[in-house]
Design a protein around this nucleic acid. Structure first.
Length: 886
RNA sequence: GCCCAGAUGGUGGAAUUGGUAGACACGUUGGACUUAAAAUCCAAUGGCCAGUAAUGGCCGUGCGGGUUCAAGUCCCGCUCUGGGUACCA
């Protein structure tokens, strides 16, 4: 029989759909397994071969878990708000909902053609009002939550007690006080604005080369705009410590830790000379205070005007103005020399009592710490560079005892910067009763902080890099904020029964130049009047694309619930997500935002777990071969020919180098999953994506590789569909042994997500069957069960051929029979001085002495022992024998 | 600069706690089938050396050291590649 995969795959996909084979029931009697894929943005380009990689991996695990008695939740949906559909609307006038619908349909068709065992009854779409109703609902929860620092917990805003002193100042003051505590707030903030996308974007979306992550252009700039922000830094500590117990790749955890950026140090107050103000600095090294020879404040610091002396006003003003005009890229470019200007003012170093100059420089950032630093040029590279540039004092207070003498000499003289540990010198002030000379760093830090606290000059502080999350966009295609701005200045959120606030129709999708959202033209929708005749205007910004993906895993649990985001009992059963698979590109943003929302919902009692995703796994990227000339310019694949293993340009004849690169239209090396399914079938595509290499590795696509696994499936079909090969007779011992080894190996490898080696084991088994010629029906059926999670269509077909009416997907995973695996002997590799020389079969229960005798008396051993003394013999049961000779 | 991951045949990649390096697959070569080709099936396939051959030896997991009876695996020092991050005091 021919392997007619087209027919087989179509008929089984229809069967599964008709019988709802993969429908998930809320059967609480079974152990649950929640396996989640990062849902895709349904782009117009359709599925990329990278998508099926993760989806196949989770599908295999889910099928395996079902066979092992688990109730499995394995859903799919669409992260469908986003710019491309809106861009298309601007160009063509087509409503983004129409484009989105079309793209979702195409994605669904493509995904379904792969035979993935999703419960399609749970499909969700972030753009569906029935879904974003609850995204808006969560936003109102964020708005009505404050963070209790003492309890380290978010609490309902009603539980916030307003100090009497504020209360006495009137309603306005109370509102202001409360608004300052809310997790979501509306404020005038300096934000990134992308002129190309015509929208603001989060700090995180602006890449370090100054380009916008979403569009790739560098048309981003700073603007002051009233925007919605979320106070994610309040959860910094919990987002950080929560990572410790998660089964996530260490790299991802590290990236989140870096992003949160916790540091410990102290805030220290410096008194100023001649003006009744003080400047508070943040430093991680208060122990180096004796070496602070000047201070720097950021150009945006609130005291710049106050402290600048008359004669320096012009210079400082000029500098502050030019710093404001600079892009952040210019300000952070390392290659650039340090700039700054003296304010004319001096501060007093509280430890030395010396006057130190206060400068303004843009290497100090407003948003971090207090926006002011004490500079210790001898032991900080940035301060050192600045001090060298402007000729400021450099006092060494850490003797680099372990450094090379030459370098040490320079450091002591202040001619070089030393940022590592050393012994404190010049760090004593008798009159102040402080002396840390000779102390360890740990004691130095402790002593100085204690001294500062006792004198009320400073205190130990913890700082985080993470900033408030800019949460609004000037875009049409996003969740509308359920917010009304009233004419008297009050801001209110809609009550639950008024949700969802549906996105209105607009004529033009283009945002205004000034950063105004398209919703500002939404006519009637825009204006509201309350029962008292008070007029209000709806919020015209929309939520960023992150919003919908922050909580979608919760909605899958109960996707059609109209009374609540999900049922609590169901949530309690299904959460947390046991395995979450997706690309590493979401290592920080999506996963951090999502954890943040989840923790807030946990604090409010909406969800039952503190963390949403127990185990995270990042699939690697699938790349493609590409070609470049000696000078490094890329050549499209259709201009390349292969001759004798080398590659040449079709037109110029130039020899080309084969490289591995991302698939791209310009390189003409994009693989379309549809084409692969058409040519080799879904089972081959699934199998190849898993066989290419480890799931987390980056690896290049090869067409011959697909052919290889197709060949395997064809061999499976050819052998096992021939009933002459599948007899009622018993198997040989070898066949049974190999079959049970295969059951074990495949099961173990699936649990470890090592699909490539599982497939290789199935190949070994199939190759054995060809050699054996005949296997029993039971063996053939068992093998189909093992193959089914990987290549479900072919497995169903053959399973059915053997007379099974029920789907193989419902069959229980075969048990390993240890009897077949028992070994009595082992073929020991015998080494002499670590080099393997010959093999010797010995009983496994042989004693060491007998083994030694058997080895040394063996004919082949003579050659290696002749004329030498046997020093000792290493005998590792079932592993190796090593003879040490001299 | 800093943090993380990686480097194994012509290629993708295997290798429990240190214990036979190269499983499986691609490619290549040879054979069978065929008028022929394709497809398929069978076999060989890390490099070098010796031998007609069976076979045997040496070298081999990015580089240099070390620990060990034994190192792809552990330790120290580098090189290169990929990812993240960047004046965060």
């Amino acid at each position: 029989m021919d392997y007619n995969f087209r027919e087989i795959e179509k008929s089984w996909q229809n069967y599964w759909a008709e019988h709802k084979t993969f429908k998930t029931e809320d059967d609480y009697s079974k152990p649950k397994f929640y396996c989640l894929d990062m849902f895709p943005y349904p782009s117009g380009a359709g599925l990329h071969v990278g998508h099926p990689e993760g989806y196949t991996a989770t599908d295999i695990i889910c099928r395996y878990k079902r066979a092992n008695g688990f109730n499995v939740l394995h859903p799919m949906g669409w992260d469908a708000f986003g710019l491309p559909a809106e861009q298309y609307a601007i160009q063509t006038g087509t409503h983004p909902a129409i484009t989105t619908q079309k793209n979702c349909d195409n994605f669904r068709r493509q995904i379904q053609s792969l035979g993935l065992s999703y419960d399609w009854d749970r499909e969700i779409n972030t753009t569906d009002p029935a879904y974003y109703k609850w995204t808006q609902w969560i936003f109102t929860r964020l708005y009505n939550t404050w963070f209790d620092g003492e309890q380290q917990k978010g609490r309902p805003i009603e539980e916030l007690s307003v100090p009497a002193e504020i209360e006495s100042k009137g309603k306005e003051a109370v509102r202001e006080y409360i608004d300052e505590k809310r997790l979501a707030y509306y404020d005038n903030a300096q934000v990134w604005y992308c002129r190309h996308c015509k929208t603001v974007c989060a700090n995180e979306e602006v890449l370090n080369d100054g380009s916008h992550e979403k569009c790739g252009t560098k048309e981003v700039e700073r603007r002051f705009l009233k925007q919605w922000m979320l106070r994610i830094p309040h959860y910094a500590e919990r987002l950080l410590t929560g990572l410790d117990n998660l089964d996530w790749p260490e790299g991802v955890k590290d990236m989140q830790r870096n992003w949160i950026g916790r540091s410990t140090g102290a805030e220290v107050d410096f008194l100023l000379d001649g003006v009744d103000e003080k400047i508070r600095v943040y430093t991680t090294r208060p122990d180096t205070l004796f070496g602070a020879t000047y201070m720097v404040i950021a150009p945006e610091h609130e005291l710049v005007d106050v402290i600048t002396t008359e004669e320096h006003k012009d210079a400082v003003n000029d500098y502050v103005r030019s710093a404001a005009l600079k892009s952040d890229l210019d300000r952070t470019d390392l290659a650039k020399d340090k700039t700054g200007v003296f304010t004319g003012r001096y501060a007093i170093n509280p430890l030395t009592g010396k006057k130190i100059p206060v400068w303004v420089a843009d290497y100090v950032l407003t948003g971090y710490g207090t926006g002011a630093i004490m500079a210790v040029p001898a032991h900080d590279t940035r301060d050192f560079e600045f001090a060298k540039t402007f000729g400021l004092d450099i006092v060494c207070i850490l003797d680099p005892k372990d450094a090379e003498p030459e370098l040490r000499e320079k450091v002591l003289k202040g001619d070089a910067c030393w940022t590592e540990d050393g012994a404190y010198i010049n760090s004593a002030n008798e009159s102040e009763g402080l002396d840390i000379d000779g102390m360890s760093k740990e004691d130095g830090l402790k002593t100085v902080i204690e001294w500062l606290e006792s004198k009320n000059l400073g205190k130990a502080t913890v700082n985080y890099k993470i900033r408030d999350w800019l949460f609004s966009r000037q875009r049409f295609w996003g969740e509308p904020f359920p917010v009304i701005h009233w004419e008297d200045g009050e801001v209110s959120v809609l009550s639950d029964e008024d949700l969802p606030l549906i996105l209105p129709d607009v004529e033009k999708y283009l945002p205004g130049e000034t950063g105004e959202s398209p919703l500002a033209n939404a006519g009637d929708w825009l204006y509201v009047t309350d029962s008292n005749g008070r007029k209000g205007r709806r919020e015209t910004n929309t939520m960023p694309q992150w919003a919908g993906s922050c909580w979608y895993y919760l909605r899958y649990i109960d996707p059609k619930n109209d009374e609540a985001p999900f049922d609590k009992v169901k949530e309690n059963y299904w959460m947390p997500v046991d395995l979450y698979v997706g690309g590493a590109e979401h290592a920080v943003l999506h996963l951090l935002y999502s954890r943040f929302w989840h923790k807030v919902l946990f604090d409010l009692g909406v969800v039952s777990t503190d963390e949403p995703y127990l185990k995270l796994y990042n699939q690697g990227m699938i790349l493609a071969f590409a070609y470049e000339t000696a000078s490094g310019s890329k050549v499209p694949s259709d201009m390349v020919e292969e001759r004798d293993g080398s590659y040449f340009h079709i037109e110029t004849g130039e020899e080309l180098k084969q490289i591995v690169a991302k698939m791209s239209k310009s390189l003409k090396n994009v693989i379309n999953p549809d084409d692969v399914v058409e040519e080799y079938g879904a089972d081959s595509l699934r199998l190849y994506e898993m066989f290419m290499g480890p799931l987390d590795a980056t690896k290049p696509w090869t067409d011959t590789g697909v052919k290889g696994v197709y060949n395997f499936l064809r061999r499976v079909f050819t052998f096992f569909s021939n009933l002459d090969n599948v007899s009622e007779k018993d198997d040989t011992k070898e066949t049974l042994k190999l079959l049970h080894q295969t059951i074990r190996k495949v099961g173990d490898d699936v649990e470890d997500l090592k699909f490539n080696t599982a497939i290789s084991q199935m190949m070994v088994f199939t190759n054995h069957c060809y050699k054996a010629g005949k296997v029993s029906r039971l063996t053939a059926e068992t093998f189909m069960q093992v193959l089914a999670p990987f290549a479900p269509h072919i497995a169903e077909e053959l399973w059915n051929l053997y007379g099974n009416d029920a789907s193989v997907s419902l069959a229980e995973w075969p048990k390993v029979n240890e009897e077949y695996l028992v070994e009595n002997t082992f073929e020991y590799p015998v080494s002499f001085n670590g080099k393997m020389r010959f093999k010797l079969e010995l009983p496994l229960d042989i004693s060491k002495d007998d083994a030694e005798k058997a080895v040394l008396e063996h004919e082949a051993a003579k050659r290696w022992t002749e004329g030498k003394t046997v020093v000792k013999l290493i005998y590792v049961l079932g592993k190796i024998i090593n003879v040490v000779v001299k």
